[in-house]
Design a protein around this nucleic acid. Sequence first.
DNA 1: TTTATTTCTTAATATAGATTAACAGCCAAT
DNA 2: ATTGGCTGTTAATCTATATTAAGAAATAAA
Lengths: 193, 193
Amino acid sequence: MKNLLLQNISKHVSLTSEEDDIIFNAFDKASLKAKTIAIKPGDEAHFTYFVLKGILRSYTIDDNGTIHILSFATPGWWVADMYSYLTGKPAVLYVDVMEDCDVLILQRSDAERLFTEVPKLERFFRILTENNLIANQQRILDKMALTAEERYEKFLQKYPDIINCLPQKYIASFIGVTPEFFSKMKSNLLRKK
Amino acid sequence: MKNLLLQNISKHVSLTSEEDDIIFNAFDKASLKAKTIAIKPGDEAHFTYFVLKGILRSYTIDDNGTIHILSFATPGWWVADMYSYLTGKPAVLYVDVMEDCDVLILQRSDAERLFTEVPKLERFFRILTENNLIANQQRILDKMALTAEERYEKFLQKYPDIINCLPQKYIASFIGVTPEFFSKMKSNLLRKK
DNA sequence: TTTATTTCTTAATATAGATTAACAGCCAAT
DNA sequence: ATTGGCTGTTAATCTATATTAAGAAATAAA
């Protein structure tokens, strides 16, 4: 019985059971308590999480103290401070725990060793990164070309499953508006329909 | 004497001269005339360009007819409609030619064949995509957290070389403001200093 | 050189979304 | 039960940026 990680990887590349083992053993397991901060700016966060259970988010805090959410991570998703993970420099993001989590942890150094040992894993991460890149490009264009309302509707379509377990001010932050404006916008939407 | 492409790849992985040949031969060469459209939405654009000479840009046009520039590409850079290139579906972006270009063209099918033949190339593209992803994540956060002025100053620092060969309304479009506002903002900046 | 086209500037007006503030509802802890 | 802290709502006011318009400057075309 494959675990969530191997299931996830096998969506893009097929592994032998030896490869399964090599890969799985490279990960550490950890539990993270809700309302704790897993990564903060300045940390040497040279690892990535794979979420088995719970929810995390990544974000920055600007000079006014406003939070800007970059991503949410639910079971089956990856989260990291990609900058720190990929460059080996200190983190620029916060990652915190919204609901108690079980995660698998992959250190960058182990990932690099694995890439040579199991080239198919390098392929998997290439594809994962490619898909992530496309999504981010679209998000840049959406922020420039769409209204807050349209971005909200896209969000609803794209993440229908996590909306319910998310305070709505987090959705506001993700799509790039204040919670007050978001509240008003939502009631406008209801009135229209 | 290595050409620009192989020089570029060798920044991240080191190739034997046979690998150099295999890779270089997988590319087609083409010249593109200024003011022509290389890719438009709907095209089956299952390839990526590597720029040897000239400048291209990628962008979308929204419902109001406004252009939103996603990227510029100068010699040594890659451009594609990543969505079409990676998924094999029709393009979503425009790519057009700002100055007469010489480009190398890599078809996705050839890239995939090469990845197996020369795993180091897969590594190169993984790294390229990773770096691109980091830059895009930062751009998302910048659009949410920074003012237009701050985004402009970041742009100046990041792309000091291409500013001069760029109509300023293109810079405005890249950082996500109208040309009128950009003009006003620039004269404010001058007055301040 | 003259004309035409595109780009840039300035200014008036408009608007999407931010800010501030006050209040109501909801949990969790005392 | 009551306090205190989050979260969401509503409303007034404010601001960064958009829109519209018109002229000036620069480039390209004739």
